[in-house]
Design a protein around this nucleic acid. Structure first.
Lengths: 237, 237
DNA sequence: AAATTTCTTGTCAACTTGTTCAATTACCGT
DNA sequence: ACGGTAATTGAACAAGTTGACAAGAAATTT
């Protein structure tokens, strides 16, 4: 009877939850399928129909939930971007507390690289890493603004931290340093076998720990000791 | 009469040359249009029709000359790849003659980066730089093999030179070092405005000299001083 | 001059593309 | 329980895609 009494309110509640769960469940199933397909074939390389087929839903649902192909594309970023942004901010906070300048730079480099490298090696979100790499190196007019909207803020935060850790660096040096970090990271994330092929299997981006070790070491050295000759001379004076 | 006498042979010759010139002229006009379109929109983002329209030729000509969309795509690489490969080889030869190890490494870095950066800033071939950057970070199944076929050999040559210049480095260090160089280069080549935007206009990839200066300095430092801690310790021992 | 090869062109049918529509179902609050 | 809202569905749409063809033009060979 208690059950019966609860019927009115509780049944409604669970019903709401059930529907919403169903709605958001199909929604997330579409997102998951889209993420994988976009990562493998690029924005123009995959059709909405194919995504629908992979997600096992009718085509029309995609337009209903996301308002078109591009809306779906953006939704992926809206879902995933906070994940890595938050990790970077946490890493920067950690670096801020380090007194030794050299170690501080190394921690900043880690704050930038590690979250993404980790994401790549994680099974579930590896496709997002590739989709991100693609987008960075392929800013088509239509979706221009995705990177800017979601990742420019954190980029400025990182460069601010770099400037603080190395006060004698020029704005140009800081910026090129950041670009270098990002380039190495993106290239590694986007890799689909060449690194392993060229190295005869000795280097594997999936090996998160080893990859991070080598890349962090190199980029830290690049930032600490990679000054153009004129700037170095200026520094000596 | 001399003219008339020559008619049979010479007229034929010039006629052949004229036709061939016309043929290769339209052929190169198609290639040029395709290069630009592919660079701007990616392989899947552009239709043969659009390329034909840009080149101002009938669609069927593309199929006739290149045997399809993918053939056209590959033809671009077949035309351009030797250009940069030769430059790199020349750079490596130059580095080989440098006795000072540190300077030798710097010359190797230059041999890798400068040809591509120069190509990017050149008006006519800037689109090829972007198309190349795209292909590196987007090895789709269909055209898989383009990078491997055209650029793996020179990659091995570069790493061989690196190994010679820094004999105490492990294979892993050499490989990751090369990947880092390439990543920075590709990312810079593929850029369509973010670097300039983030730096408030202070950094511009089109400024070949400045870009090369900063990137070469950083990557040289990365190779020379960017050893993982364990390797560095091993080195000290 | 006729035959042949090379090059060029307009057009075609089969097929995808992203999106929209009207109808159907499931679920909510009252 | 019943109207109303949200979610889902299959079908249809218009626009655009591809590769191929046969026929024409130009040039070379016989």
């Amino acid at each position: 009877m208690a059950k019966a009494n609860k019927t009115k309110s509780d049944q409604n509640v669970v019903a709401v939850e059930a529907t919403q769960r169903n709605a958001t469940l199909t929604r997330s199933r579409i997102l998951q399928a889209a993420e994988a397909e976009f990562a493998d074939h690029g924005f123009d390389g995959v059709s909405v129909r194919r995504i629908a087929q992979t997600a096992d839903v009718p085509v029309a649902l995609i337009n209903y939930h996301f308002g078109g192909k591009e809306g779906l594309y953006r939704a992926i970023f809206e879902m995933r971007a906070p994940m890595i942004t938050d990790q970077r901010i946490a890493g920067l906070r950690f670096a801020e507390m380090e007194p030794d300048p050299a170690r501080k730079v190394e921690l900043i480099v880690k704050a930038v690289l590690v979250p993404n490298l980790h994401m790549r090696s994680t099974e579930k979100s590896s496709s997002y890493a590739r989709i991100l790499a693609r987008e960075v190196s392929d800013p088509k007019s239509h979706r221009r603004g995705v990177i800017q909207e979601f990742f420019d803020p954190i980029a400025h935060k990182v460069m601010e931290a770099m400037q603080k850790a190395m006060p004698d660096r020029s704005i140009e040096e800081i910026n090129w340093g950041y670009q270098a970090m990002l380039g190495v990271m993106v290239y590694t994330m986007a890799d689909t076998g060449r690194i392993s092929r060229l190295s005869g299997g000795r280097c594997d981006p999936e090996d998160e720990m080893a990859t991070a070790t080598y890349l962090v070491a190199m980029m830290t050295a690049a930032l600490l000791h990679g000054r153009p000759h004129s700037a170095a001379a200026q520094h000596k004076a």
